[in-house]
Amino acid sequence: MIQPLSMRGRHAVVLLVEDNEDHVFLTRASFEEAKLQIDMRHVDDGAKCLAFLRKQPPYEDAPSPDLVLLDIHMPRMDGYEVLDAIVKDDALRHLPVIVLTTSAEALDIERMYGMRCSSYIAKPLDFESFTKAVAQLAGYWLNLVVVPHRDG
């Protein structure tokens, strides 16, 4: 039976794809501040993201994420390339990908939605607003929305 992630009897697995360590800290702290039961995993570039999702070395034992939080501007492989690869991969295209980035540029927003991102959130600059945004994001994606899940 398909249920919201919060009703599946385990912590939701969230993969954060972010190269800025301050933003990683802020995201982790925001989940904790909002008292969300999440197993947050982190990679710092797009190539590592795809290796994680495909369970390639060194991520053979990585859990399958329920959500991907994706930054756009990263080294090696940017968010556009990552989303393009996810959408084209039959084993990954079911994943909700939420763009979580500092860019509020109309071109970035239009391009990511055109590529099939599930949501686009421009990161608020202060901790309180960021925490509120993360809590709202998690409340929606973990408690309300029903998404497919594939173990693997």
Rank of each mutant, 00 (worst) to 15 (best):
C117Q: 02
L125Y: 13
M115C: 04
L125F: 14
F127A: 12
D126I: 06
S118G: 06
C117E: 02
S118N: 10
Y120F: 12
C117V: 03
I109Y: 05
Y113S: 02
T101L: 01
E128V: 14
L100N: 06
I121P: 01
A106E: 15
D126C: 07
E110T: 01
I109E: 01
A122E: 13
T102A: 03
T101P: 03
G114S: 05
E128R: 08
A104K: 11
D126E: 10
D126A: 00
Y113W: 15
S119W: 08
K123G: 12
E110C: 01
F130G: 02
T101G: 07
E105L: 12
E110S: 08
A122I: 06
E105R: 10
V99K: 03
K123P: 12
M115N: 08
F127L: 13
K132W: 11
L107P: 05
K132M: 11
T101S: 14
E110M: 13
D108E: 13
L100Q: 09
I109A: 01
D108M: 09
D126P: 11
D126H: 13
A104R: 12
E105A: 12
L107G: 07
A106L: 09
Y120I: 02
V99W: 01
S129H: 10
S103K: 05
V99G: 00
E128S: 14
A104C: 04
T131E: 12
Y113Q: 02
E128Q: 11
D126F: 12
P124M: 03
T101N: 10
K132N: 14
E110L: 08
K132R: 15
P124W: 10
K132H: 14
L107E: 12
E105H: 13
A106W: 05
G114R: 03
S103I: 09
T131M: 07
C117R: 01
S103D: 06
E105G: 00
E128C: 07
T102M: 15
F127V: 11
E128H: 11
Y120Q: 05
I121L: 15
A106T: 10
A122K: 00
T131A: 15
S119Y: 13
Y113I: 05
E110V: 11
K132P: 04
F127Y: 14
A122Y: 08
F130I: 04
I121A: 05
L125M: 13
S119T: 04
T102V: 08
I121W: 12
F130W: 09
F130V: 08
E105P: 02
E128I: 14
A106S: 09
M112D: 00
S118M: 07
F127G: 00
S129V: 08
A104I: 15
C117N: 03
L125A: 10
T102R: 09
E110P: 02
L100P: 03
G114Q: 03
G114H: 04
M115I: 04
F127R: 15
E110N: 15
G114E: 08
R116D: 09
K123W: 11
S129I: 06
F127M: 09
S119V: 01
E110G: 02
R116T: 06
P124F: 04
R111N: 14
T102E: 04
R116I: 01
R116V: 00
P124C: 05
T101H: 10
E105F: 13
Y113V: 01
G114D: 07
D108A: 03
E128G: 10
S118A: 06
A104M: 10
V99R: 00
